[in-house]
Design a binder for these strands. Structure first.
Lengths: 345, 345
DNA sequence: ACGCCGAGCTGAACCGGATTAGTGGACGGC
DNA sequence: GCCGTCCACTAATCCGGTTCAGCTCGGCGT
């Protein structure tokens, strides 16, 4: 365990004071150019790095950001979304050597307690808020604390917090329109938890789009798990006559799309001949199954990177507004096809 | 932005000095019981929380641990392993309100640079090391830095670093033995990258077990991606006559097992009638497909929790040894069955 | 020749904790 | 009644940075 060099050590070697060293290392006026170079050379030679604790104490900012996820670990592990998101956030943060604190919470109350704790101890300078809910309790708490935060998701119910979002309603409309062109008239949607804001956005858009196209559009709620996805699929398909059952299903994540594919086959239906399937979020999973799944793709890493940049600005005290990213695009694969001729025409 | 209360504020209100407040809050002798209670009450009333920066500066430890993952984001997102692991680590760390710094690196050189940086700035008190490689360059660096670390994986090539591991060789033997009892004589394995230590462990054990049972055992290397898993499966099955092709395949992760299932079907083979499939790491994915996949299960969250406890001890200066967790167990599902009668008996 | 200015640096305070040496008073022993 | 001891607390210092007021000195103008 070697003692790390401090600015004091550099100052001694250079024959100046700590203050001069500080000026030199931070590139601010107060030292001559030759002195600055000499100090930088010595710092480099000693392998000096600023103590994060000392700097944090001195300037009052933690120098890191936080992310809390409160989904159950088992379903979380299968959500490529979060790893992609974290990867994207990191890609932006490393450019300023800002670390990310990641934690999983049991529920939203635990998450809020964590925010209060982090902020009281100044462990982070701000947080990313994911899985926004209807009437989300985190928003007023963050506002009350004055804690910088960026919401990832639709700018609805976000109060004064800036949001980074993509137009999911437009994506839903794209899917519905595409299916209609393929001749589908009865389509269903297997959704995530209804309390989530983005589920609400998608459901609302789905209803509007299907109604607008004169189609029957039914939505079934789940918890994103494969089990519930399979159950919802069975519920939609089992007891309905061919003339009333949906001919296409849109799933809110790819895991459920996969389980839906399995469930449909279990009921003797062929994909896409009898049933078309569309997944939300295009992960590698969609290409691994047969048939490969048509899916809504979006640049999740870019999404995370944008949010990180936004949070940095917000934490810097700048007033930041919402940022709209590109809408998801539909990647066509073989799980969608023309609607079966169920009218017996 | 309200000013947070400091120990100085508490001291003023209580009519004592900072030192007395420090004694009281840290439960050490130096103050009378009534005074201690009074101070605690005031601290509670003011909502005081210690400044993490000040504490870190004062006692020289960061109070947090780090984890660096250097796998490509696309395959990473599908690996339930890491989310489970992080979740397990957290479960242990939150009990001491210790945060976890998570970062993804491009490659091992970047990871090592990150370790040096983190340690020089005392951003973390130690790190979890995953995906140990043969002749891993991180080990000597961590030893040289004197940076506390715990390796997750077999205690081979870990130098002086403590390892938390499970007996994967035994797990391989279990699988081989089970398949042999089902009548299989030619089994193959679709492995992860050969440079990883645990791939080496599994491959070595696989060769020993198959040879010991008088069976043909072939291993094909991949990068854990579904694409490569499918390609490896095709390579194993395509050009071989029924009498020489493997009748069972063990995959090093569940994503590849799924892609293998899809690939085998594409070649006209039925599972498990023509081919048995076993996955490594039992995630929800294994239960979502038809047939559900037989898999090696292990308590990944417990694994992470043990590692976290170990790292805390190591960072505390205690000499810690290796810790062996339970070996993975085989969860039987419908993707494995009796070997087809290929001898034309 | 003198004053003034600004560049270049110093000294000290500050951030919010932990720690250690020292001090005052009460109390006990003889 | 005097001394010693212990308790409860204070004052001061440290951790490693940042910041700010002020000092010194050289050069320039007049």
């Amino acid at each position: 365990m070697v003692k790390r060099p401090t600015m004091q050590d550099i100052a001694r070697r250079a024959g100046v004071t700590k203050a001069a060293v500080s000026f030199a290392l931070n590139g601010r006026p107060g030292v001559s150019e030759p002195t600055r170079r000499r100090i930088l050379a010595i710092a480099d030679e000693l392998g000096w790095q600023p103590s994060s604790a000392a700097r944090a104490l001195s300037d009052g900012r933690a120098g890191s950001f936080g992310l809390v996820i409160d989904r159950p670990a088992r379903t979380l592990g299968l959500e490529p979304f979060f790893m992609q998101l974290i990867s994207g956030i990191q890609a932006e943060l490393v450019r300023h050597t800002t670390p990310l604190l990641l934690t999983m919470a049991e529920d939203q109350a635990a998450e809020i307690a964590l925010y209060r704790d982090w902020w009281a101890r100044r462990l982070v300078d701000g947080v990313f808020v994911v899985d926004l809910q209807l009437g989300d309790a985190r928003v007023p708490v963050l506002e009350e604390l004055g804690m910088p935060a960026v919401v990832l998701g639709a700018p609805l119910g976000t109060g004064s917090l800036p949001a980074v979002w993509s137009d999911e309603a437009a994506a839903v409309a794209t899917v519905v329109s595409h299916l209609r062109q393929l001749g589908h008239r009865r389509i269903a949607r297997v959704a995530g938890p209804a309390r989530l804001r983005h589920t609400w956005v998608r459901t609302t858009a789905f209803e509007r789009a299907t109604r607008g196209a004169g189609m029957a559009g039914r939505t079934v709620e789940t918890d994103y798990s494969g089990e519930r996805g399979a159950a919802a699929t069975a519920e939609l398909l089992r007891d309905a006559a061919p003339a009333t059952r949906p001919t296409a299903i849109l799933y809110d994540n790819d895991v459920m799309a996969l389980s839906g594919l399995t469930a449909a086959r279990g009921l003797g239906l062929a994909v896409p001949a009898d049933l078309s399937i569309v997944a939300w979020d295009d992960s590698a999973l969609c290409e691994l199954v047969d048939p490969p799944l048509t899916a809504l793709s979006r640049d999740i890493r870019g999404y995370g990177a944008h949010a990180a940049r936004r949070l940095r600005e917000a934490a810097g005290g700048a007033p930041v507004g919402d940022l709209q990213d590109a809408a998801p695009s539909l990647t066509l694969r073989r799980s969608t096809g023309p609607a079966p001729d169920t009218l017996g025409g």
